[in-house]
Simulated scan of single mutants.
Amino acid sequence: MRSQLWSKLKRRLDDLICDSLKGRVNFTITNYRRAHDQLGRAFITVDKKEVLNMCTITSDIRINRKNRELHRLRELSYEDYQVNYEISVIAHELVKQEGVYAQYDFYDAVEEFVNMPIDQALKSDDMVVKILALIDRRAGKRTLMKLREPIQNEMDIIQYFYNLRCEAEQINPFVE
């Protein structure tokens, strides 16, 4: 874990959830003790149904595949450490843009989110930060209504959380 214990970070997250979604949205971390790095997955449930899974193993597999693909496309060898590092960073970012997150990405996003203003979080390029901002009590009804148009261009999971919040607040996002 990063700079804070999960229990404290979870408490901060739970405190930021809007009243209309309290008890419906839950954040869970599962660590696998027998895994070589003892990491596991993070997931978000809505009404006790898992809607977003951030598994370290799945993410690492996708990053490795993307890494090999980038090396092959650019016809690069694996001998230069600096090039390998840069390619792995690019691969990781590309995989995150596809919506595949690891448990450690979730931690990073949560820590980033709890330390930033809500308007900045709503504009974030990070999928998890944006999801957390959409269910945050600091995002009011007027702010949600202003997001009606830009949210159409977002990933399905972000649209899901936007619609969930609008439904919970009894807002019809399609009416002006």
Rank of each mutant, 00 (worst) to 15 (best):
M1F: 15
R2Y: 08
L5E: 10
W6K: 01
S7Q: 11
K8E: 10
L9E: 03
K10C: 11
R11H: 10
L13M: 08
D14G: 01
D14Y: 05
D15L: 09
I17A: 03
C18W: 06
D19G: 15
S20A: 13
L21A: 03
G23N: 06
R24V: 06
R24H: 02
N26S: 06
N26D: 03
F27Q: 03
R33V: 15
R34C: 10
A35Y: 07
H36V: 15
H36Q: 07
H36D: 11
D37A: 09
R41Q: 15
T45S: 03
D47H: 04
K49Y: 12
K49N: 14
L52T: 01
N53F: 11
N53S: 12
M54Y: 00
C55R: 02
C55P: 11
T56F: 04
T56K: 02
T56H: 05
D60K: 13
R65Y: 02
K66N: 05
R68N: 11
E69T: 10
L70I: 09
H71Y: 10
L73T: 04
E75W: 07
E75I: 10
L76N: 01
L76R: 00
Y81Q: 09
N84M: 08
I87V: 15
V89W: 05
A91I: 06
H92S: 05
E93M: 04
E93S: 03
L94C: 14
V95E: 00
V95D: 00
K96H: 14
K96A: 08
Q97Y: 05
G99H: 03
V100I: 09
Y101L: 10
Y101E: 02
A102H: 06
Y104N: 08
F106K: 04
D108L: 11
D108P: 13
E112K: 03
V114N: 04
N115D: 12
P117L: 09
I118Q: 00
D119F: 14
Q120C: 13
L122R: 10
L122Q: 03
K123C: 15
I131E: 03
A133M: 11
L134G: 02
D136K: 02
R138F: 00
G140Q: 05
R142M: 11
L144K: 01
K146W: 12
K146R: 15
R148Y: 05
I151S: 00
I151M: 04
I151N: 00
N153M: 11
N153P: 13
M155C: 08
D156S: 15
D156V: 14
Q159W: 07
Q159M: 14
Y160W: 15
Y160K: 13
L164F: 01
R165M: 14
C166K: 03
A168P: 10
A168V: 14
Q170D: 12
I171H: 07
N172Y: 13
F174G: 08
F174T: 09
V175Q: 12
V175P: 12
